[in-house]
Simulated scan of single mutants.
Amino acid sequence: MYKVAVVQAASVPFDADAATGRAEQLIAEVADNGAELAVFPEAFIGGYPKGTSFGTATGIRTERGRAEYERYVRGAVTLEGEQVRRLVHASAEHSVHLVMGIIELLGSTLYCTALMISPTDGLVGKHRKLMPTASERLVWGFGDGSTLDTMDTPGGRVGTVICWENYMPLLRQAMYAKGVQIYCAPTADDRPTWQSTMQHIAMEGRTFVLSSCQVITRDAFPDDHPIEFELPGGDTLMRGGSVIIDPAGTVLAGPVFDEETILYAELDPGAKIRSHLDFDAVGHYARPDVFSLTVNEAPAESVRFAG
């Protein structure tokens, strides 16, 4: 059996050092409870600016919105930065594999990224969100096929698909083909309908599914941070709904709403093997003579210097 943890906690928006400190405390807690893998929410370090327009409308940008964007960028992290080094150290110190949602700064563009960190090998993988949803596209760049990484753990191969990317059937198929056994879904979607998506993926991919969402309220943000829209939850910007599901679609832990918590479950790797008796989406239940998928894993670089 392999014990895993899904962390449902609030970020510290726009403050990468403070958010990393919070993550370090939570990593120590899951280790004390015997977990060997911890999954954190989307944008846990850097923050998810829910309800914020950054002063934009069609054909309009404002100076206040640009200033808000500057604050958001200054709260992001780089892969070579101190915050990632601290996460690598915490993973090694506590012998916990990590899937950590960050806002990554690469050049002059932000990406919604999930890091995969090994206690023995450090930062072994990353996934930059391929398709930011709706107005996320204003502040986040598009990932490419070069970051469809996985991470091997004692409990099985880990892969990560972020939030509404999980509604992209071809991306799911690619992850199944990579042999993902523990399918991690950091998210900002706190609606009850998210649960049916997670159960469907568990059954479709015959994978364990670990989904993590923040519980965060208005007062976690700076007092002058603009939220221009009335949100369904009022002062609760995200209400959780984290969950752990087995390859048969059975819920092992959660969902939990409206409170911070850490979900734990013991995963039996044999459950995935047994589930493939009657279904394998990329094997004996596939029809490659009718349907096929080609995945471009080359980096999509805008500038290449030759010579």
Rank of each mutant, 00 (worst) to 15 (best):
I227F: 02
D289F: 03
D149P: 04
V290K: 13
E297C: 11
A23Q: 08
T120C: 00
M168E: 13
A18K: 14
A202L: 01
E297K: 12
V7S: 08
R22S: 15
V99G: 06
Q214A: 11
Y69V: 05
S275V: 15
L231V: 03
V282K: 15
Y176L: 10
R304V: 08
G107Q: 04
R71C: 01
V251L: 06
D17T: 13
E80V: 07
E230V: 15
T147W: 06
P269L: 11
Y183Q: 01
M168V: 14
D152Y: 03
Y176T: 07
T294R: 06
L148N: 03
D258Y: 05
A38Y: 02
G234W: 12
V295G: 02
T250H: 07
A265Y: 01
V12K: 08
T250N: 08
T113F: 02
T261Y: 04
P186T: 01
I216D: 05
A177K: 09
V12A: 09
T187N: 06
K178P: 11
Q83W: 09
E63I: 09
T62Q: 08
T217F: 05
R274M: 11
L263I: 11
V7E: 07
A90P: 00
E259L: 13
P255G: 05
R71D: 11
S95W: 02
G145H: 09
E70Q: 13
V180H: 07
D280T: 04
A114W: 00
A92M: 03
I117V: 11
I27K: 01
D235I: 10
G107R: 03
F221C: 01
L79H: 03
M203D: 00
T217H: 12
S211G: 09
V180Y: 04
A92F: 02
N33L: 04
I162N: 00
M198A: 14
T62C: 09
A9S: 15
V295E: 05
A185W: 07
L293K: 00
A90D: 00
R128D: 04
E266M: 09
A134G: 03
V303Q: 08
F54Q: 08
T197H: 12
M100P: 09
S212M: 06
Q83D: 11
H276R: 15
L171T: 11
T78M: 14
A281E: 02
S146D: 09
L263F: 13
L110A: 09
I103C: 10
R157S: 04
G21W: 10
Y176E: 07
R287E: 13
A31M: 08
